[in-house]
Amino acid sequence: MSADATLKDVIGQQTHRGPLAWLVSRQIFWILIAVILAVVFMSLSTSTFATPNNLFNVTRNFAFVGIVALGMTAVIITGGIDLSVGATVLISAMVTTLIMHAGLPLALALPAAMGASLLVGLVNGLLIAVAGMPAFVVTLGMMSVARSIGMVLSNNALIYEFGPDQAMLFAIGGGSVSLFGLPIPNPLIIMIVLALITGFALRWTRWGRHLYAIGGNENAAILTGVPVKAMKVSVYMFAAFCAGVTGFLMTGWLGSVTTGLGTGLELTVIAATVIGGANLAGGSGTALGAVVGAILIEIIRNSLTLLGISTFWQGTFVGAFIIIAVGFDRLRNRETGE
Rank of each mutant, 00 (worst) to 15 (best):
M1S: 14
D4H: 11
A5K: 15
D9G: 07
V10S: 09
G12C: 10
Q13K: 14
Q13H: 13
P19G: 12
A21L: 14
W22I: 12
L23F: 15
I28P: 08
F29Y: 08
W30Y: 09
I31C: 07
L32E: 08
I36S: 08
I36C: 10
A38D: 04
V39M: 09
F41Q: 00
L44V: 14
S45R: 03
T46E: 03
A50Q: 11
P52K: 13
N54R: 10
F56G: 06
N57H: 10
G66M: 04
A69E: 03
A69V: 04
I77V: 13
G86A: 07
S92T: 05
L98K: 14
L98H: 07
A102S: 15
L104S: 09
L106G: 11
A107R: 06
L108F: 14
A109Y: 11
A113D: 05
G115F: 08
L119N: 02
L122K: 06
V123R: 03
M133I: 04
V137C: 00
T139V: 07
T139P: 03
G141K: 06
L153H: 03
N155T: 09
A157H: 12
A157K: 13
L158S: 14
Y160I: 12
E161H: 14
F162Y: 13
F162C: 05
D165P: 04
D165I: 07
D165K: 03
D165Q: 05
Q166R: 11
A167P: 01
A171P: 00
G173A: 04
S176W: 10
S178E: 15
S178V: 08
G181Y: 07
G181S: 07
G181W: 10
P183E: 13
I189P: 05
A201H: 06
R203S: 14
W204K: 14
W204R: 14
R206K: 13
L211F: 00
G215Q: 07
N217T: 11
E218W: 01
L223M: 12
V233C: 10
S234R: 05
S234Y: 00
Y236D: 01
M237G: 13
F238R: 01
A239K: 00
A240G: 07
A240E: 00
V245T: 09
V245I: 15
G247N: 05
G247W: 04
T251H: 05
G252E: 03
G252T: 04
G255Y: 03
T259F: 11
G260C: 10
L261D: 02
T263H: 02
G264A: 09
L265C: 02
T268S: 06
A272E: 01
T273N: 01
V274C: 00
V274G: 01
V274A: 02
A281T: 12
G282R: 01
G289M: 05
A290D: 06
V292Y: 01
V292G: 07
G293P: 09
A294D: 04
I297T: 08
L306S: 08
L306E: 09
L307R: 10
G308F: 10
G308W: 10
I309Q: 01
S310H: 02
W313Q: 08
W313H: 11
Q314L: 12
T316V: 15
F317Q: 00
A320Q: 06
A325Q: 02
G327T: 06
D329R: 09
R332F: 07
R332E: 11
N333S: 15
